[in-house]
Design a protein around this nucleic acid. Sequence first.
DNA 1: GTTCGTGCAAATCTTTTGCAGTTTC
DNA 2: GAAACTGCAAAAGATTTGCACGAAC
Lengths: 144, 144
Amino acid sequence: MKKIIEKLKEKNIKITPQRIAIIEFLMSTKSHPSAEDIYKEISKKYPSMSYATVYNTLITLKNLGEVVELAIDSDKKRFDIDTSLHHHFYCTRCKRVYDLSKNFIIEAISTIDGHNVERTFLNFTGICNKCLKEEKDEQDRKKS
Amino acid sequence: MKKIIEKLKEKNIKITPQRIAIIEFLMSTKSHPSAEDIYKEISKKYPSMSYATVYNTLITLKNLGEVVELAIDSDKKRFDIDTSLHHHFYCTRCKRVYDLSKNFIIEAISTIDGHNVERTFLNFTGICNKCLKEEKDEQDRKKS
DNA sequence: GTTCGTGCAAATCTTTTGCAGTTTC
DNA sequence: GAAACTGCAAAAGATTTGCACGAAC
């Protein structure tokens, strides 16, 4: 919490009650909430809260590296303020997202923590070799 | 291709030119296209093609287990007709989705196939232990 | 001929944007 | 007081739905 506030100050990003409420809510839950979940929860205390502010804050925190946007629920974005290395399990029935530890058996498995795993996706996100090459070519061109 | 057609016939799902075009396109590409990509490609040959038909067909094929809906691009759904066990790499810059083989080193890694991996998500999808328990409780109640 | 599918348009849902007024520092 | 933020409403993008007409079997 303090660490995030410090980071906001460093970057000249203003500390508003809405932002604090969103950060506090994210830190209080392991539910990997969607923007809507966050909006509804915060609205209880701040009836004037708007979606614009929720999305605004989430994008700000994501850009700071203090929130991770999860692509596990294909219907909507889900957010996690725990940016440490860990993985997720998504229930296709209730849409809950569970944390998985870094240390799990990485074979084709039929059971994790008692869940019935139907399908395993190992997804990696980053900059691809095509983009890296284009970027390098671009730099080389500028040099010469 | 034939296998899918057979499956459609079995289930009394009609074989239409649009559906064939969509299946053929999906089989011809490794780009993991979105509904829009599919719509645009098929529209070249079938100018009357509609999004409704694209989504319709994708849902049908997904329900048959012949297409997988990928939750890796958090902006939109991406589809893969290769339902064999494999994983994906998503480029945050160009939005390409690459196939990864089942056999890759599963440690914290900084390079896969020359891509610069920023973040690793290991996502598992299925029915969670809460839902399984509810289902079991439900069944037990019916029995007694 | 019956059943199912297509295509259009409208609707819905999620997310983004423009902007006037307000708050933070 | 300047810069940044909020909240509203409108817009945009993705997906779904209702329904009249048409195609597949």
